[in-house]
Each structure stands twice: as C-alpha cells, then as structure tokens.
Design a protein around this nucleic acid. Structure first.
Lengths: 215, 215
DNA sequence: CGGTACTAACCGACCGGTCGGTAGGTTTCT
DNA sequence: AGAAACCTACCGACCGGTCGGTTAGTACCG
C-alpha cells in the first residue's frame, strides 16, 4: 500500500473518538487544544474538522460512545439476571473489569469532564447515568426486602458502590502489586460482604461470595 | 507595617482563596478565567494580581490550604486514638462530615483539579495525600492483624473508603432527602460493617453473639 | 499640629500568544 | 470526473499577565 489504507468513515470516526478520549483523559478536556487532538490522530486541525462538528460535539460523542460501551458490555449482560444478588455481583464485577482491565478512556472521560458538556447533551447523559443508579438502587432494595442484605439505605449503598468503582481510575495503575482481576474480585467481595446480612451463605450452593467467577 | 495591616492582608488573602475555590469548583479550573475570579472577589484582574502570583500559584495555595484544613479538622483529632477501630471510625466520620456539612470548596478542588497543578506543587500535594492513605492502610492492617477486621487487603479497603467518601462531593446536594449527619453516619456504618468481622462496630449497633467467620 | 514621605490596594488599558473554528485550494480514491 | 479526505493560511475572540498611574491611609518629622 502506497499510503496508510483509507478507512471507511465509521472506522475513522471511531479512531478519532478513541484517540481524542485518550488525550482528553491525560491532559483534561479544557487543557487540550484541538491542535493537540489533531496531532494525536495524525492530522492537522482543519483535517480533523472535516470529521467532527466541534470540540463540544466531540466530547459529547466520546461520552455517548462510552456510555454505549458500558451498557453493552456490562448492563446488557446482567440486567435480566433473576437473582438480585447475582445480578448485583455480576454488574459490579463487570463494571470493575471494564474500567480496570479494558480501560476504555471514553468511560473515564465521562467521570471527569461532566462539567464541560453543553447543557442538552449533559441532560441526556445524566439521564442515562440516573438509569444505572436506579437499577442499582432497585436491586439493592430488592435484596433488603428479601432480607438478603442488611437494612441499608439503597441510595447510600448504590453511591458507595459507584464511588468505590469510579475512584479506581484515579489511583489504579496497571503493572503494580495488584493485578486487575484480583482487584476486581477483592472489591466485589468487599462490597458485597458489607452489604449482605450475617454470614456468607456458605451452605447453599448458590452464589459463593468469595468465588472467582468469570462470565 | 502594623499588625492590623498584616491581619487585613491575611484576611483578604483568605477571602480570595475561598472565593476562587468556589468558582474553580463550579466551573472547573481551566474553564475559569482570572477575570472570572477577580469579578467574584469584587475586583479587577489587575487588582487581583496584586495579591497573588499567578493562576497556578493560586490553585496551589487553594489546595495547600484545603489540605491544611483537612489535616487540622480531621487527622489531628483522630491520629493518636489508641484503639484502631475507633481511630478509623472517627477519621471516616470526620472526613465525611467535613466534605458533606462544612463543604470547604478548597478540599473539593483538591479532588478534581489535580491535573492542573505544576509539577513541584503536585509532588508535594501527592506526598501529603499518600501520608493519609498510608495512615488508613496502617490502621486497617492493624485491625486485620488483631482479627477485628476480615482478612482484606488494606490497600483495597483504604481506596474503597476514599472512593466512597470522595465521590460524595459528586452527587450529594444539601437539602435533599438525606441530610448530612445521617448520610455520614450511614456511610461510616456501611463501610465498617463491611470491614469488621462478625460483630457490628462499636457504638450504635446491637451486639450479636453469633458464629464467627472462618479465618 | 500640619505636612511630607511612603505604601498597600486597586484600576483601565494594553500585550503577546493561543484558542476554536473556517475559507479555499490540493491530493487521493473510486 | 467527482466526491471525500486533507492541507495551508488565516481570523476574531479571549486568555494570562503586565504597565503606568491613582487613591486612601499611615508613619514620621518639625
């Protein structure tokens, strides 16, 4: 090939989103110029503007894609699990593995650059976030009513979970003492042990809290 | 120079830090211009620059002051508690109350604008953060060794705690269903119940004499 | 006491530079 | 050929920061 193979529009768009997400993640959205993004993609600024509508639209597209990714890779695979404990466990574990092991920067950007979004896109994103939160609250509520979980406030527990998980992107660096899988398993266990009542249900053959399960 | 004048100076400096922290918190550091800060303080930009050395120095001063505040209001009052469980409980509860009830924006800025700090100031701040983390890890380690806590990884537990606490500033809004004191108490209990083996943490929980977990 | 010297606090105007974004031409693929 | 991809060159707006100058208050001297 004489030159880098031309890519179809959708693929190039995806590349741009991914690279831009990485740069926004490293330097912060406001501190990153469109020239920086263009250089990272391997283009000039004007060339970049051939593919995107503007800086804010680029950020919105990144976040939308990140949210799509999260819902597709985590929620869609767990939302219909009948047992609420297993549903919560798989969701938590999947969420952790996504941000720790696969580390899609698009998801991380969602967490840190919410302020920069223009109002309409922000409202839409907040609604999707809220759906996730309500899903967690509902699941925890179910566990409380079935007396599987201690009588905690579902909102407090849900945000405690989210804080725990989302904060990992701030401190976890791959290659350290903790590997991704171990950390995800430890944190999942840590949270669920705090949530469930009494001793872990070791007797019944149901979900074993300390078990390392892979989907 | 008289003492009165110096006090005046210090007061004004403090005012500037507080107002600037609030504005940085609302709009984000990079998105806030020095004109915005000056207007919020009730000055022109040139007048503001009479008091501060530059935008980065202003941010560094805010964060240093925020860290001072945290250590003075939380760590200094708990670090020398002999009982590790009580030490952890009071630290966690104090940290929560500080960010939920008193809400010093200087502390919140520390969490969200770390990227913008120039390298030397950032190194210094990171060292202070690390001291806090190690204090938490050491305390949790102590609880594990005394078999008060379950055999968790102290690092995982410490960062779980930090994530839970620090994330509150992202979602908690005063005046809602949850008031500050209730939330602080609930979260403290939630975390300690997850950490502690068997018996609920001292204080409010009813003592239960039930089977202990297999170590 | 008045007057002089000094200073912190503050301002309007401005500067070099960078930003997001664009106009218009050129290359490349089909 | 024609369209999509990409470039060079450029714009107006705004940024962080500075400059010269003003004002109000205080310290000091006679």
């Amino acid at each position: 090939m004489t030159r880098a193979a031309r890519l179809d529009h959708a693929t190039r768009q995806g590349q741009i989103l991914e690279v831009a997400a990485r740069v926004f993640c490293e330097r912060g959205y406001e501190a990153t110029s469109m020239g920086d993004v263009a250089a990272a993609v391997g283009m000039t600024k004007a060339g970049l503007y051939h593919h995107i509508a503007g800086k804010e639209e680029l950020l919105a597209a990144i976040m939308t894609w990140g949210m799509d990714l999260f819902e597709e890779r985590v929620l869609l695979r767990t939302a219909d699990i009948a047992d609420p404990l297993e549903r919560l466990r798989r969701t938590l574990h999947g969420h952790l593995l996504l941000v720790l092991r696969d580390r899609p920067k698009e998801v991380t950007v969602i967490l840190h650059e919410g302020l920069a979004l223009p109002a309409p896109a922000r409202t839409r994103l907040d609604a999707r976030k809220k759906r996730y939160i309500r899903f967690l609250e509902k699941t925890i509520q179910e566990l409380v009513m079935r007396k599987v979980a201690r009588p905690v406030d579902p909102t407090v527990a849900a945000f405690a979970l989210l804080g725990m998980v989302n904060w990992t992107s701030r401190w976890f660096r791959p290659g350290g003492r903790l590997d991704e899988e171990t950390l995800a398993a430890s944190m999942t266990e840590f949270f669920l042990r705090g949530l469930v009542a009494g001793e872990p249900p070791a007797g019944r053959g149901r979900a074993r809290l300390s078990a390392r399960r892979r989907p």
